[in-house]
Computed example of a mutant assay.
Amino acid sequence: MIHDPHHTLVALAVRLPCALTLTFADGATLPVDLSGVAQAYPALAALRNPALFATARVDSRGGYVVWVDDDLELAADNLRNMAIEQAGGIGNERLVNWMHKHGLTQERAAEAIGVSRRMLNYYLSGAKAIPKTVWLACLGWETVGEVAHG
């Protein structure tokens, strides 16, 4: 049973030297380039080896892309966020980090940016794409709302 179709992988295709096309249980198919993270993080440097990279597979539950069991794997939610950001969208982790940075509860965050708590939950879970206007509201709150309310 799939509990979170937005963050459950059902298939992948390797695109050498260091990219994947990921298919999620909600039907989304997204490309993600991992060359930047392979360069930036020593723990992921092995991904720069095309022979190893080509062995990528989805784990049995769809929660990870695995290269070396229990040693070299990336979580589906992080990969989806990365793919959305690379495509010019706003990944849900950006919104989560914004709330954490300002110590906002879901109720307070929803009020600050002018959306319902239910809609905020859709954005936070990845169930709905975060519109640019919502992210701009977050940035506006930082510059105006924090001074008035912080």
Rank of each mutant, 00 (worst) to 15 (best):
M1K: 08
H7W: 13
T8A: 11
V10Q: 15
L12E: 07
A13E: 15
C18W: 08
T23K: 14
G27I: 09
A28C: 13
V32G: 14
L34H: 14
A38Y: 11
L44G: 01
L44D: 08
A45S: 08
N49K: 01
A51H: 07
L52F: 05
F53G: 05
A54I: 01
A54R: 09
R57H: 07
V58L: 04
V58D: 02
D59C: 09
D59V: 10
R61T: 12
G62V: 12
D70H: 14
L72Q: 08
A75H: 04
A75N: 03
I84E: 04
Q86W: 06
A87H: 02
G88N: 06
N97H: 14
W98V: 03
W98L: 09
M99C: 07
H100D: 10
G103K: 00
T105S: 10
E107I: 03
A110W: 06
E111K: 07
E111T: 00
A112H: 04
G114M: 06
V115L: 10
R118F: 08
L120P: 06
Y122Q: 12
Y123P: 09
Y123W: 10
S125Y: 09
S125V: 10
S125D: 09
G126M: 11
K128D: 02
K132N: 00
T133P: 00
G140D: 08
V147M: 03
V147T: 07
H149C: 06
